[in-house]
Nucleic acid binder design. Structure first.
Lengths: 193, 193
DNA sequence: CGCCTAATGTGATCCGGATCACACATTAAT
DNA sequence: ATTAATGTGTGATCCGGATCACATTAGGCG
């Protein structure tokens, strides 16, 4: 739980009393590899703050193809936000790719915290702001770039993930086929040598 | 300025005193067709709340191709948010497509309002939440769908824009060539008849 | 330790959509 | 009203990346 304090205090300081109050809204959960935190069709009870591990948020189209909407690692928040905020059934899955633990927060908890503590409303606003900017960047990337550029951008933003997850999933995140991604490497290696 | 009250009160009620205070941070600006509110390389002084008119937020790649990141109409907020929040030079343009007026707010104003009035911090958080969800939907759409599906989705979400702006710009928003979009129509009309 | 399954590389083929090129229609400008 | 500028449809060609198919390697895990 110490993680939580650090995470929040990157944005706003909390005194002990406030922190104690905040903590009452979170529950810690251990997660094993391949375990689902959320399944399509589920009610979306929680959003999750990743304490440890790697997770993917993805959906599956009519043909059974998977598309990764978000790859989350330490200190990232994740869930099917559309369903979470609107309290509808999930259209996405959240699955663990590397075991770890997450802190769970209900929508009610989030709203209560925001209403009771101006600081926490501020915290969530700042987090959302960052998330919004990051998503907008992803939109511009998807609109305009080649698989090559997408991969380079990804490698720059998340060098650690390159090591920790398989290329297949990176391809699904980039919206590129596994094969095309693989061929990029060969092309790169020959030129850069 | 009455628009502003209505807009904010969709999310949180304000008393007269609060409203008066809020108003001091906004300035109204008339905008003519084709006028730029923001130019690549500019310092990003403001974000804009659209009172009237249609605007596009777009960027231009090395080949001179345009990509529309956002199409904004009444009651939408817009600017180059990446640059606005991080106070960097703009990488995008904001241009008017149908004349109207906007309310301008500085980053300092936004932060001051949020700090002084918990209600306003709440307002911005809710707006950001909605924006985040909408952007995530756009990401899933760009990741997985055909031009056909993108167009249908767009037509469903923004039927009014279909009438008011040219196909060329819709194509740039969807990340599809003008010609491909045009051919979709022909295909549609023959089948649905 | 070796088996089975998943991850990766690589060739061959195919196809959707970009691009180029032009005709026609519509709108704006003086 | 005339001319220019911009929007729209449509054909012809081309190419990047998806798809299919298989060989190779690397990891779990019994």
């Amino acid at each position: 739980m110490e993680t939580l304090r650090q995470h929040i205090e990157q944005i706003t300081p909390l005194n002990d009393e406030e922190l104690a109050y905040v903590k009452t809204f979170f529950t810690l959960k251990r997660v094993r590899k391949n375990q689902y935190l959320l399944h399509e069709g589920d009610e979306v009870k929680y959003e999750y703050l990743v304490v440890k591990g790697i997770y993917k948020v993805f959906y599956v189209d009519a043909q059974g193809k998977e598309y990764i909407v978000q790859l989350a690692q330490e200190n990232w928040w994740m869930t099917d936000y559309q369903a979470y905020f609107k309290q509808k059934q999930a259209t996405m899955y959240v699955q663990c790719m590397e075991e770890g633990e997450v802190l769970c927060l209900t929508l009610h908890g989030r709203e209560k915290l925001s209403a009771d503590l101006h600081k926490m409303e501020h915290f969530f606003r700042v987090k959302l702001t960052n998330g919004y900017v990051a998503l907008q960047q992803r939109v511009t990337l998807l609109l305009s770039s080649t698989p090559q550029q997408r991969y380079e951008e990804f490698a720059k933003l998340y060098p650690s993930l390159l090591q920790r997850i398989s290329k297949k999933f990176i391809a699904e995140y980039l919206g590129v086929s596994r094969e095309t991604l693989s061929r990029l490497h060969s092309a790169n290696n020959t030129t850069q040598k």
